[in-house]
Structure formats: structure tokens, C-alpha cells
Design a protein around this nucleic acid. Sequence first.
DNA 1: TGATTTGTTCTCCCCTGGTTCTCTATTCTA
DNA 2: TAGAATAGAGAACCAGGGGAGAACAAATCA
Lengths: 199, 199
Amino acid sequence: MQLTKRQAEIYHYLLDNADHFDHPPSHDELCQALGLRSRGSLHKHIQALVEAGLVEPMDRTHRGIRLVEQAEPEAGIPFLGSIAAGRPIEAVTQPEFMQVPEELLGTRPCYVLQVRGDSMIDAGILDGDYVVIEQRDSARNGDIVVALVNNEEATLKRIEQQPGRVILHPANASMTAMNYTPDAVVIQGVLRGLLRSYY
Amino acid sequence: MQLTKRQAEIYHYLLDNADHFDHPPSHDELCQALGLRSRGSLHKHIQALVEAGLVEPMDRTHRGIRLVEQAEPEAGIPFLGSIAAGRPIEAVTQPEFMQVPEELLGTRPCYVLQVRGDSMIDAGILDGDYVVIEQRDSARNGDIVVALVNNEEATLKRIEQQPGRVILHPANASMTAMNYTPDAVVIQGVLRGLLRSYY
DNA sequence: TGATTTGTTCTCCCCTGGTTCTCTATTCTA
DNA sequence: TAGAATAGAGAACCAGGGGAGAACAAATCA
């Protein structure tokens, strides 16, 4: 259902101030905060929000103006899919969330990918491991990064950036490093943590 | 259940003053403290708190207003210390707790140790990694276990149990497996997960 | 055991606050 | 430009929240 301008205004006020109130506000308090003089007018708006499913119906209970539980902040960080050298990231249809120790998180947003293949095995990253990736578009030489190559292949490699070229080093004695021009390689994130499940 | 404003007020008063009382307060004392003149009125509020599960039901016992212990669910599993081949587990003085994805947990209690040394490097377990250990006293051949050897040395190795002897295999080409009698090796847990932090 | 606390129940009452209604002003739209 | 939609004011209504106090019963104390 479409909100009117005023309804949206009031809804946003409620959103912004949800934590300011120690108790849900009464109609009178809200009227004052919103510059209304009539409880009746406010009630009409609140009623519209209830019908739109944004506010809990409050059947005569006092101080009952409560926002509908927004999708509770899903704990953890999203598990997005799997990464295998030479293919695009294979996304899961429904992102799941994984609880990750804070020690493995950076300040920037992070996500989790599952590693396919053995290209980083000498760095202790095995087939099936989960890697925590911090979203960044730049990296320092020596970092292990998720890189998008030629706009189609995603890969997890150690990066070496030199003037005029970018080298992606696997960590596998049986594989060789690859050379690219800088504009062929887009850094999508930097390896920040690793999770492995046995059994 | 949602508390009314007054109920929340009283509950917070109880929380704030829980330690001030040498014994749980009587209704009369609380009335005085809260500025109420009627025990009956207070009783209604306390009753609501009991129904909300915040106050112990006090079936007619005198001076019985007691808060329900809010067993705050300690998030995560304990980080106990570090394990290095050939030494006892070095315990941290104050166990910290780490958030660990459910995928790495078993049904039994788990704890976290930090790995010191390179003895399992060929299994992708590096110096500094955190391992999630499930408490068990037995393991299957091939499992990586925390084993207490000769009642003094703790070590993380792949186990092979044969009639009359136990072999602990490192995963490092430059190290050799060790043979023990079964009673010299006590299994303390089985490797269940691994966490690694880069940077 | 009798007196005193103290928890419980109940009834009465007032005020706050949600609801409903009507009336009016303004803005938008066909 | 007329009618609809949107907004607000304010009155009236009444249920819920909160308190007072009496009466009672169980626990505790002297």
C-alpha cells in the first residue's frame, strides 16, 4: 500500500526515534513531537501505518505505538557463494549468514565465500574452506585477494602489482603465475580470515 | 510480554537496587521507596513482573521479592589457550569467548586453541591458526586430535590406533611419526574446525 | 499461643490515553 | 472548476492503567 507524504514523514520519524523512547510513545507525546494539536488526526495516520503493516496494531493498549519488527539484524555476515579459479563467483540463491568471530572481521563490510580448487593449497587454503573477504577495491602487494579478471573470471590469488602489469600468484607448486594489464584485473576484496570445517 | 510504563519503572528500580538490600525487600519497604501507599497496588505490578518472567514467583513467603537470574547466554565458545607440540596446553588466565559459526560446532562441548608450530602445516594448519576442538575421549583413525602424551605433553596430530600401539602422525615432511603405548596417550578432543586471521 | 508482619485479593475510583466522529482547510486531479 | 484526496482541529466516548484502602490468610516472631 502506498503511503501518503505525511504518513511517510511520521513513519520515518518513528524509525529515527525508535531508540530515543524508553517506552513506546503515547499519541499525545507524538503529537507534540510532530507539531500536531489533535490526537484524532495523528490516530488516523497511525491507523494507516498499521494497515500498511508498518506499525503493530495496538488494540486500545496504552503506549502501544510500536514498529513492526523489521527483519532483525541478521547476526553474522553473508555467505555469498563459491569461488573457483577461472570462473565467476557462483552465487547461492539465498544468502545465508555465518557467525564469524570479530577477530576475523575488519572495519569494512565482509562476506564469506567457499573456496573450490587447490590453487592456494600451499598457503594453507584447502578445497572447501570458507574465506572471509573484506570488501575493498585496492590491496597491498602480497595480499591474497578476490580478483575479477577480464570482467568474467573471479579468482583467489596472491597479488603483485607492478607499474604496467599485475601478477596473480597461485600458491601451488604445480601452477604458474599469470600476468595481466592493470585494467584487466579488478580487486573485489582482500582475504581477512579463514574457516574450515572437518567431518 | 510487554511491560507497561510503570511496570518497567518498578523493574528497573529493582534492578538498580538489587544490591542495596541485604535481604529481599518486603512489599511495604518497596511501597515506601516507590512512593506508593497501597501494598495492593504494588502487588499488582509485581504480579505482572512475575508473569513476565522477570521476578521469581513468591508463593506467600515473606520478604520474597527476588529477581529472576537473567542467565545471559554467553555468546560463543571459550578460547582456552595455545597448543604446541611437546608442551602442555598453555592456558590463558581469563578464558575469552569466540563467536564461531554453527557449522564448525558439534553436538558436544567445544573449545578453541591456538596452534603453535608447523607440525601440521601439510594439512593446512599453520602456526597461529585457531582450532575448534570437540571434547571427546575417543577418535577414529585418521582424525586429527588433541592428545595428552605421558600425562604432560599436549599435541595436535593425526591419530592412528592399532592393537597395542598408538601412532601420532605430524603433517610435516620434515617430521616423523611417534609411537606410543595406548595408555601413554589420552585423547582430549577431536579437531572440528579451523579459524585463521590474516593481517 | 497470641501478636504482628507481610503477602494476597477485592472493590472502588480517577485519570490517561486510544478511538471515533464531525467539521474545516488545503492540495491535487480529471 | 468541481470533486476527491489529504490533513488537521476538537469534542465526545470509554477502556485500560494505576492507585487507595479494607479485609483476609499465611508466615513469622515473641
